[in-house]
Design a protein around this nucleic acid. Sequence first.
RNA 1: UCCCCGGUAGCUCAAUGGCAGAGCAUUCGGCUGUUAACCGAAGGGUUGUAAGUUCGAAUCUUACCCGGGGAGCCA
Length: 433
Amino acid sequence: MQTLKHVYISEIGKYEGQDVCLKGWLYNKRSSGKLHFLQVRDGTGIIQAVVFKGDVSPEAFEMAGRIQQESSIEVYGTVKEDKRSPIGFEIGVKDLKLIGEALEYPITPKEHGVAFLLEHRHLWLRSPRQLAIMKIRHNIIKTIRDYFNNNNFLLVDAPIFTPAACEGTTNLFETEYFDEKAYLTQSGQLYMEAAAMAFGKVYCFGPTFRAEKSKTRRHLTEFWMVEPEMAYYDLKMDMDLAEDFVETIVQSVVANNRAELEVLERDISKLENIKKPFPRISYDEAIEILKSKGKEIQWGEDFGGDEETVISEQFDRPVMIHRYPAECKAFYMKQDPESPKHALCVDMIAPEGYGEIIGGGQREDNLDLLLGKIKEHKLNQEAFEWYLDLRRYGSVPHAGFGLGIERTVGWLCGLHHVRETIPFPRMMERIKP
RNA sequence: UCCCCGGUAGCUCAAUGGCAGAGCAUUCGGCUGUUAACCGAAGGGUUGUAAGUUCGAAUCUUACCCGGGGAGCCA
């Protein structure tokens, strides 16, 4: 028995009629006198293993009736087609081996509260819903890497420890670095600008940290961001890239994660519809939309979650809002030569209220204008000398953007909160497990 | 940091001033086709912590702790 071939549940259909070995965990169990129905999962799927008293040893039958949820087991038996099975097959068990017993597993098939599940995140990950989310996250990350690899981008890893803030220190995590202070990165962008001047088209992909005391469904203190940066790109080229990039990601999920989207009860038609071109409106046009919808907002104010939602509801695909007032954007944004009060920046707002998934734009490439911005924002010029060097030695127009992985996963999965989009979420009130 | 809501059995919840309850989980018994299986029985409680009001507090008051939702800020 124990020499039988180990197969995964996702490939069980290839072995109909054959005797195989499954290695997994007991997901759920139902018993009926001389029958035990074991729901076995192995990370690739769930299959029902039927243990009939007459087919196995008395010891194996007794064990099948005794073991509890999430005990690890090896199942030896025959693959049988069965119309009653959700996956079309079940296993007629011939023998069973208990690998690791689980007693009183805390997460039952019934409902649980958010706090309880987050405290047991290390176990919660075993549930079919979390597995579906993690598979979609995996495919999104794979698609992102493939996209840049196929379009002549060079991966350049940005540092996690940084010497100073790039946009003010209030929302940075501070840490000791030998005899000085260091901060955890909030963006790799400035380093990507240096890399773009060296290699042309580059991207970084890594964790990012924000010490903001935000308690909302869209915020984590540690999240992953992918940041492409391109030399000789202007704002329009930047938006074209962002649009093509997001369409590629969404259509990859639609094509490759249909089963997972169904587990999550996602409305797939809304994702199938995410095709180029995406609507593009200026900040000034967005203000007009908001005013026509009865929002009280003045030119120069940045948009909050409410405003983003109102605008996104006007469209059935992501909307790109460009040329915000320079005063509400970061110092490195290039001012619009045709309207110096505006910055050549763009935010992409996901539909269905999922908020901003991309922020980016063209960078200020003129040394004197950039020096002026650093003074206006009361930043320490000395800390930015290396960054200013990029404008002193062969400055060129360049642009880039950052895409938040968790918000993208949350949108595509149709989740209520980004905390489920990352294996171990870090939030203002939670750092365990 | 501010505003709102919550904390009762391992879990999800009920009990709104008068005996601390149910479903699931666990234990025991029954059932050869169950699909969050079902049927019967049992065990399981410092009602977040501290103080106060009251003949009597899970319930009312105050403070604190913990968590959730939202705002600001952001991806």
